[in-house]
Computed example of a mutant assay.
Amino acid sequence: MSVYQLLLFCFFSGLRGGNSRFVDKRASVFTGPEGGNAFLIFQPDQAGTTMFLCKNQCKGDDILIKTDGIIGERGDYTIMRTSGSLGRSIIYVSLTNMTQSDSGWYRCGFGSSADPDSYADFEIRISKDRPKDAGFALTNTEGETVLYPCITSKTGGRIFFCRGECTQEDDILIETSENFAQNGRYAILLFKSGQYVKIEKLKKSDSGQYTCGYRSDSSEDTKLTFSILVVEKPTSSIGPGLVVMILVLFFVGGGLYLWKKWRYQNA
C-alpha cells in the first residue's frame, strides 16, 4: 500500500461556495469554519476501482462513503473522482454545513478502508472563530516548519511567494528565476515535480493568506492562494496542584528518610 499526497488547490472553490486546498504527505491538520463549506483535493500515487472516505477507526458506521462510482454522497459528505494532469486520478472531498461533530481523524483513498491500496490520513478541526467562507486552513504549531506544494509545473519566467494576494510590491516575500531562493525564514524550492514554498520556525503572526506561483512577461500569473493557521505549543499537562503534591511528597519522603537515619544512628 502507498500513502499519497494530499494537495491543496484553489480552482475548485466555486462549488457550493466552498474552498479547497492542497496538502502534503504528513497526516496534516486542517481547521475549517463552523457552519461553512470547504473542500480538500487528494492526488493518489495509484488509483483503484473503489473509492472511500472514513472516520476514526474506519470500521462499521465509521465508513462514511464507499463507492465504485464517480461520485459518492452521505449527509454533508461528498467524494468525487476526476482525472488531473498526466491522466492521474484526483479525489475531491467536500464537507458542508460543518459542525463540531465533524472534528476528528479521517482517511480517504482507493481500495478497502481496512487495507487500502493508496490512502491519506488527515485531521479536521472545526472553529467558530473562522469566517464561514474561509475554507480550510493548514494548521501547524509554533516552531514547526511547513513545506507547501504550490504548482505542478513551470513554463518559464520567475517564481514568487507572497503574503496575502500578492497585489502590492510589499506583499512579495521572494521572487526569483532560480530553482532555490531564501529570504530569512521563507524559501522557494523548485523540483521536477513542481514548486514548493517553505516557512521555518513558525510564529502565530504567520497565520494568514499566502500566494505562490510563477509569472512571465508574455502571460498572466499562474498562482495558488492558500491559508495557514499557526497555533500555540501545547502547555505542560502538569498543573500547579500536581506540582504542589510532588513537592509535599518530596519533603515528606526526605523527612522520613532523615528520621529513620537518626533513629538508626542513635539505636
Score class of each variant (00 low, 15 high):
L190W: 15
R21L: 12
T67W: 03
C162W: 09
G60F: 05
G135P: 10
I91Y: 01
Y196R: 11
S103C: 09
G14H: 06
A187V: 05
Q168N: 14
I126Y: 05
T141P: 12
G17S: 05
V244T: 11
G84I: 12
L173A: 07
S193Q: 15
L147S: 15
D102T: 01
D61V: 10
V230G: 06
F52G: 03
N97K: 15
W262C: 04
E144W: 10
D170C: 02
T222A: 05
G35E: 03
L189W: 09
D133E: 11
E175R: 13
Q43W: 02
K25T: 13
L189H: 11
I71H: 01
I90A: 06
T78P: 00
L202P: 03
T222P: 00
G194F: 12
R81K: 15
S101I: 11
D76W: 00
Y106R: 00
F42Y: 08
P33N: 06
Y119T: 06
L224W: 03
K260H: 08
G104V: 06
P240Y: 04
V244Y: 05
T155I: 10
F160I: 06
D129A: 12
W105E: 14
G48E: 05
Y196D: 08
F122W: 11
V230F: 04
M245T: 14
T82W: 03
S153L: 07
K261V: 05
Y186V: 04
S112R: 09
W105R: 15
I151Q: 08
S89E: 15
C166N: 03
R130Q: 14
K55D: 00
S13W: 00
I174R: 04
G208L: 07
